[in-house]
Design a protein around this nucleic acid. Sequence first.
DNA 1: TTTAATGGAATGAATATTCACTCCTTTTGG
DNA 2: CCAAAAGGAGTGAATATTCATTCCATTAAA
Lengths: 191, 191
Amino acid sequence: MLKTEKRDEIVRAALETIAEHGFHGAPIAMIATRAGVGAGTIYRYFENKDILISALYQQIEGRLYPFILQGYEPKRPIRERFLHLGKGLLRYFLENPLDFRYIEQFHNSPYGAALRRARLQASSGNQDAFRELFEDGISQQVLKNLPVTVLFALAFGPIILVARDQILDFTRMDDTLIEKTIGACWDGIRR
Amino acid sequence: MLKTEKRDEIVRAALETIAEHGFHGAPIAMIATRAGVGAGTIYRYFENKDILISALYQQIEGRLYPFILQGYEPKRPIRERFLHLGKGLLRYFLENPLDFRYIEQFHNSPYGAALRRARLQASSGNQDAFRELFEDGISQQVLKNLPVTVLFALAFGPIILVARDQILDFTRMDDTLIEKTIGACWDGIRR
DNA sequence: TTTAATGGAATGAATATTCACTCCTTTTGG
DNA sequence: CCAAAAGGAGTGAATATTCATTCCATTAAA
């Protein structure tokens, strides 16, 4: 097996295990077994578990943002841009439940809080699409005049809950329902 | 110290510790110290850690629902009822950050999923206020015709994110802002 | 043959849980 | 009314388990 393949196997196994059982139900030994690799081998690729966890998060972001921004046109009207981003995000979550679960775990842990705090300072360059959209929308008087954090919450809160529900098998979202849901989010933020 | 006081001390210490550090950053020994109690004592009141965790969750629900339902009038119009419940919920979360953090921890763990799954079967008698409200609203054509799970998401998703933001010190919500936020949630669910 | 990579047993730290004992309150017997 | 005994809550050191991480004998690559 090539070196990069082995690394990928480890990352994949870590994603699966952690998404399914949480950080604390995912011992290194279990990840190693699932990756078909010795426990010690993991430490040849990642200094320690924390670093593996952070690297995995970054890797997921590296898939998520390009997916959402595919075909995104920053010059179009606010509404259209919002629907694009919102639907993209929800679709990504629904199609990649492991990534979604992992992101949730991450954000509900000290890692996540630290990350967000860091990003409040220097904007990270990817979430900026959203921030910019909201700021544009406010100044054009298309969106409600609320703090950006609140607009974020109105837009993404429902997406997160809906995704969680589907993954736990409490709902099944089809394309029409996705459309309607993001439309409803729009109703929440628009003026 | 009376027996019930001691039990209360244990529960209080567990809430503090878990809300602050998560389930796994809250060893029994730490909870015991904070409660001013021997580690073994906890096991006189709770069979094991899992049972303590569940009991604590139920206790929080036992405070939350009465708070929200205070002054709630099931005969009033849908909109009014929704604003009442929504504002009540958000206020409770903002005023009781430990409870909120705990609830979040709980729902993002296997405990939470299991609980919700159980409740889908036999409706639990307290969340029913919300379910009833949404079902009424749909049949009266006041609310969007969407699955109840989606309406839940639209209504509570933003509340949860906004509460989390304030607790992590990313926003500060005052009364006006609470009002506007719940109003925006209403815009999301109304037809 | 030499070097690097690998696997997985060994290690030690952290943890939940148990249990033998202490101490105080209540009950009993005189 | 008092002293002795019983009951049971409380304790925290001891135990058993679970982990992340390290180490080194073995294997593969060069």
